[in-house]
């Protein structure tokens, strides 16, 4: 049964000649308990798509339905993990999670709340850092806090907007596994936006590519048939994995190249003369001169 449906959704920004049609004619249906990955180039409108689902933006045309009802705004029923963590820097890890818990469960008793918060901090392995401020944490740890905050709201759906793209490859790998492990505990519906095909294959049940914008739309869907839990090293040797990966990549490269032909505009570069070294260049940042 579809928990989330997007029917003929279009979204553009700006007016007149500045108008940019970001998304055109998006049709998507996400089943309950499913892990869906949307893969696309950067700048193709992935974040706009997730903002349409979480309610920060509204579609110009078409409708976004959550359990059959149109979305009227953001809500704690859809937990969002932002690309840039969006933690409040003046609050500790514990308080950042508590802010969300206070909002979603206002009737919970104090001790219940504390247990609830600590459970999710423990789930993302941050118990030793629970009283630290975000500025004292590494990028991976910050994203864990963001994950804990989203999960602690007990959302019906988890929306992840390139949650791991700012992390290094090793941290990313371990966080991928952790998110999957946490997800598999209660199999909430999850929508992952990513630019990494491997990440999609490793984590999702279904991958849908987003064509490059403007006028981005969803491409054909690819089912990921691998059994869970998936092991990175085993899956890497799997022939089926390689085939699936190549299919998706080929599709993305193909739509990418057709797009490039479409926008084959000639750009005239300004006629500039290179500055010779040793010449005085005006407008350069002055360096501090030490006289003594």
């Amino acid at each position: 049964m579809a928990i989330l449906e997007l029917n003929n959704v279009s979204k553009s920004f700006g007016v007149g000649s500045n108008k940019i049609d970001v998304l055109t004619d998006i049709n998507l249906s996400v089943n309950e308990g499913e892990f869906l990955a949307i893969v696309g180039f950067s700048g193709s409108g992935k974040t706009t798509l997730i903002n349409l689902i979480n309610g920060l933006h509204f579609p110009d045309q078409g409708e976004v339905l959550l359990k059959g009802n149109p979305i009227v705004g953001p809500g704690p029923d859809r937990g969002v993990i932002f690309q840039n963590y969006s933690l409040l820097p003046w609050l500790s890890v514990y308080s950042n999670v508590k802010l969300a818990v206070d909002e979603v469960f206002p009737k919970m008793s104090r001790s219940e709340k504390e247990a609830h918060i600590l459970k999710y901090i423990e789930m993302v392995n941050l118990t030793p850092a629970r009283d630290k401020k975000p500025s004292e944490l590494s990028g991976g740890m910050r994203q864990r806090v963001s994950v804990a905050r989203a999960l602690a709201m007990n959302p019906e759906m988890l929306l992840m907007d390139e949650p791991l793209s700012a992390l290094d490859a090793l941290t990313r790998g371990s966080l991928q596994e952790e998110i999957i492990k946490i997800w598999s505990q209660n199999k909430k519906t999850a929508v992952l936006i990513t630019n990494d095909v491997d990440e999609g294959i490793l984590m999702a049940d279904r991958i849908i590519p987003l064509t490059p914008g403007p006028n981005a739309t969803l491409g054909p869907e690819f089912n990921v048939p691998f059994e869970r839990p998936r092991d990175v090293t085993n899956i890497n040797k799997d022939e089926q994995y390689k085939r699936l990966r190549n299919e998706i990549l080929e599709y993305l490269i193909e739509v990418g190249s057709t797009r490039r032909q479409v926008s084959d505009q000639k750009y005239i570069l300004p006629d500039l003369k290179p500055t010779m070294p040793g010449r005085i260049r005006l407008g350069r940042k002055k360096q501090k001169v030490k006289y003594f």
Binding site: L56, P74, G75, F82, S86, L88, W90, L99
Partner: peptide, 24 residues
């Protein structure tokens, strides 16, 4: 980003001021 957090958490105007805007 902080405003987005407040929106997603559906903070009311008072909480928004005292928990997000004022500390920020």
């Amino acid at each position: 980003d902080f405003i987005n957090v407040a929106k997603v958490l559906k903070l009311n105007i008072g909480q928004n001021i005292f928990k997000i805007i004022l500390p920020a």
